[in-house]
Design a binder for these strands. Structure first.
Length: 575
RNA sequence: CGGGGCGUGGCUCAGCUUGGUAGAGCGCACGGUUCGGGACCGUGAAGUCGGUGGUUCAAAUCCACUCGCCCCGACCA
C-alpha cells in the first residue's frame, strides 16, 4: 500500500467533538468519520483492523466448533412479539414500517431470529448441539451514544447462539466459549479480565463479561487481591455482615426526634447533625411490577443495587417510585422517610442489621429520628444483600482477600440462557424417548468495533496509537527520508516488493513530505514496525528498524533487511 | 426526557457583549528556498456565518422558532 494514493486523511488537531482518547485518535489517524450521532464511516485503515479482529474471531470460533452464518438486519415485529421483547425492549429498538405498513425493526441482537430458524429446522436430539454465529452490523438506538466507537448506535458485533439437548451440554459449551474468548482476546494483544456479570435485557441466569482494563471504561469492576473472584459491581456480592460484639453490647439512649428543616439527602442531614453518613439508614421506595410499593433500607454511606433488590424480590420490574406515589402511600415526601412506623413492606441490607445510634427519617416533614436502635425500634421483613460492593471490603469468596476496583470496557459477554427463548418461542426437539423438550440455549457476543476502540484506549501514547501487532492495520511502515532521491527510491522500492513477496503487510510512505511530517503521521497511525531509509545509512548499506511501542531502534544491513524484518514479525506474532 | 455548551472556508478557532458589507493558524493550489521529528518566503483559491422567520436603513452579531452536534444527568430521598 502506497501512502501517496491511500485514503488516510490524518489530522493535526483533535476533532472538536471527541472526548476520549480512542475517539480522538481514530479520527486523527484517518480511520473513522462521524456521519450522525453514534454512526460512523469506517475508512480503509479501520476496516483493516476490523478484518484482522474478525479473522481471529472466526479462526477461534471455527476451531471451537461453531459455524458461521448470516442473519438479516431487519426482522419482522411478529418474532419480537412472540418473545415479548417488542414491548420490553423499549426505545433502543429502532422500529419502522415497510411499504405495506408492516412493523419491522433493525436487529439489536438476534435471539428471536436465530431461534425461529433453528426451531423450523431441528427436530431431533441427534441434530444437537449447534453453535451458530455471525459477524454483522447491529443497531441499538441508545439513549446516549458517546465516546466514538465505544458506545455507538450502529456497531459491528459477533453474536453466537448455541442450542443443546440438556443443561449439562449447554454448560459445557458455555465453558467452551469462555475459554475461546480468552484465547481471542489474548491473541488480540489485550489486557482483559473475565468478570461475573448481570444478565440484563438478554435474560438468563449465568453470565460473564470480558472487560478490557482501561481508566476510561464505562464499567466498574471489582476483583479480589488474593483469589480469582472478579465481578461487575452490578453483580458483585458482599460478604455477609456480622454485627460486631461491641455494637451488640452497648446500651442505646432512647429514640429522639429532631427537626431537620429542608434537609433531605444523607449528605445534607449528616452535615446538619454533624454525624457521619455511616450512621444513617436510607429508606428508598420502589414500585414493584407496576403496583406494590416496597421500601429498601441501606446504610447512608452505601449504594443500593437495584439488580440485587430485584433478585431478592424475585420480580421482573423494580423501579424507583416517584414522589407523588411515595407521598400517597406514606404521607410524607421522600427525604424524610424512615422504617419506624412505615406502612410498607421493608427489606433491609445486611449492613443495617443491628445498627445502633442510627439516624433515619421520621416519616414526618422536616424531621428525623436519632439514636435509632434497629433491634429495638424496627424490624424489616427480611435482611438481604442489597448494596453495591465497594473497594476495600472483604472478598465474598475467600477468607483473607480484599476487593480492588478497576474500570473496564466490556468487549464480550457470554450468557447461559436456559429455556428463556426456546420455551416462549417453542423451539423444541424430540429426545431419545420421543418426548418433546425445549432446547437449552446459550449466547455469546463480542463487540468488534468496540474492541477496536478498547485496543486504542489501552495502547497509545502522546504521539498516537500503538497497535498490538496481531490487529495492526499494517505490520510495517517503510519510511524513506527523501523518496524523490533516486538511490533511496530504488532501495525502498526493492525492499517494498521483497516484503510484499514474503506476504507481509507494508505501507510505503512515498509522499513528498518532510521527514518530520512522515514521522508524526507514522506514530499517529501506530504501525508496529517502522523502517527508516535515509541517505546517511544507505551509504553504509544500512537502514533502521524501530519499534513503535518502545522506540527501540536497531540498524540492519540493506541486503538482509527483508529477511530480518520477516523474522522480527514472525517472532513478534509468536509471542 | 431534563440541564449546560457549541454550530463562522476542509480542520481548529477568533469576531457576537456595544449591529455598519467576514478574520487567523493549519490544510489546499502555484512558484522559490529547504529536507532525520508537524520548515520558510511569496502568490492564490476557497465561507448561503446550521436553517427559517422577525426587528432594523443595515444582522455572523439582537429576537423567536427550528435542525444538528458535544457534555452532564435522567432513580438513591
Amino acid at each position: 500500500m502506497r501512502w501517496s494514493t491511500a485514503f488516510i486523511p490524518t489530522l493535526k488537531e483533535d476533532p472538536a467533538d471527541a472526548e476520549v482518547i480512542s475517539h480522538k485518535l481514530l479520527v486523527r489517524a484517518g480511520m473513522i468519520r462521524q456521519v450522525s450521532r453514534g454512526i460512523y464511516d469506517y475508512l480503509p485503515l479501520a476496516l483493516r483492523v476490523i478484518r484482522k479482529i474478525e479473522t481471529i474471531v472466526r479462526e477461534e470460533l471455527d476451531r471451537a466448533g461453531a459455524q458461521e452464518l448470516l442473519l438479516p438486519i431487519a426482522s419482522p415485529a411478529e418474532l419480537w412479539q412472540e418473545s415479548g421483547r417488542w414491548e420490553l425492549y423499549g426505545k433502543d429498538l429502532l422500529r419502522f414500517k415497510d411499504r405495506h405498513e408492516r412493523d419491522f425493526c433493525l436487529g439489536p441482537t438476534h435471539e428471536e431470529v436465530i431461534t425461529d430458524l433453528v426451531r423450523r429446522v431441528v427436530r431431533s436430539y441427534r441434530e444437537l448441539p449447534l453453535n451458530l454465529y455471525q459477524i454483522q452490523t447491529k443497531f441499538r438506538d441508545e439513549v446516549r451514544p458517546r465516546f466514538g466507537l465505544m458506545r455507538g448506535r450502529e456497531f459491528i458485533m459477533k453474536d453466537a447462539y448455541s442450542f443443546h439437548a440438556d443443561m449439562e451440554d449447554c454448560r459445557r459449551e458455555y465453558q467452551n466459549m469462555f475459554d475461546t474468548y480468552k484465547r481471542i482476546f489474548t491473541r488480540c494483544g489485550l489486557k482483559f479480565r473475565p468478570v461475573e456479570a448481570d444478565t440484563g435485557a438478554i435474560g438468563g441466569s449465568l453470565s460473564h463479561e470480558f472487560q478490557v482494563l482501561a481508566e476510561s471504561g464505562e464499567d466498574a469492576i471489582v476483583s479480589c487481591g488474593s483469589c480469582d473472584y472478579a465481578a461487575n459491581v452490578q453483580k458483585a456480592e458482599v460478604k455477609p455482615h456480622r454485627p460486631s460484639a461491641r455494637d451488640l453490647k452497648d446500651s442505646s439512649p432512647p429514640l429522639r426526634k429532631v427537626a431537620t428543616p429542608d434537609k433531605k439527602s444523607v449528605a445534607e442531614v449528616a452535615n446538619f447533625l454533624s454525624l457521619p453518613p455511616e450512621k444513617f439508614v436510607k429508606t428508598i421506595v420502589y414500585k414493584v411490577d407496576g403496583s406494590e410499593l416496597v421500601a429498601a433500607l441501606v446504610r447512608g454511606d452505601h449504594e443500593i443495587n437495584e439488580l440485587k433488590l430485584r433478585a431478592t424480590l424475585h420480580r421482573e420490574e423494580v423501579i424507583l417510585a416517584d414522589e407523588a406515589e411515595v407521598e400517597k402511600a406514606t404521607g410524607v415526601a421522600p427525604g424524610f422517610l424512615g422504617p419506624i412506623g412505615l406502612k410498607l413492606r421493608i427489606l433491609a441490607d445486611r449492613a443495617v442489621q443491628g445498627m445502633r445510634g442510627a439516624v433515619t427519617g421520621a416519616n414526618e416533614i422536616n424531621a428525623h429520628y436519632v439514636d435509632v436502635d434497629q433491634e429495638r425500634d424496627f424490624t424489616p421483613s427480611a435482611f438481604a444483600d442489597l448494596r453495591m460492593a465497594v473497594a476495600g471490603e472483604p472478598c465474598p469468596r475467600c477468607e483473607q482477600g480484599r476487593l480492588e476496583s478497576y474500570r473496564g470496557i466490556e468487549v464480550g459477554q457470554v450468557f447461559y440462557l436456559g429455556k428463556k427463548y426456546s420455551e416462549t418461542m417453542a423451539a423444541t426437539y424430540l429426545d431419545p424417548e420421543g418426548r418433546e423438550r425445549a432446547m437449552e440455549m446459550g449466547c455469546y457476543g463480542i463487540g468488534i468495533s468496540r474492541l477496536l476502540a478498547a485496543a486504542i484506549e489501552q495502547n497509545h501514547d502522546e504521539n498516537g496509537i500503538i497497535w498490538p501487532l496481531a490487529i495492526a492495520p499494517l505490520q510495517i511502515l517503510l519510511l524513506p527520508i527523501n523518496y524523490k532521491e533516486e538511490r533511496i527510491q530504488n532501495v525502498t522500492n526493492e525492499l517494498y516488493r521483497d516484503l510484499l513477496k514474503r506476504g507481509l503487510e507494508v505501507l510505503l510512505d512515498d509522499r513528498d513530505e518532510r521527514p518530520g511530517v512522515k514521522f508524526k503521521d507514522g506514530d499517529l497511525i501506530g504501525i508496529p514496525l517502522r523502517v527508516i531509509l535515509g541517505a546517511k545509512g544507505l551509504e553504509k548499506g544500512r537502514l533502521e528498524v524501530r519499534q513503535r511501542r518502545d522506540g527501540k531502534t536497531e540498524e540492519i544491513s540493506v541486503e538482509k533487511a527483508a529477511e530480518a524484518i520477516q523474522a522480527m514479525i514472525a517472532e513478534a506474532l509468536k509471542a
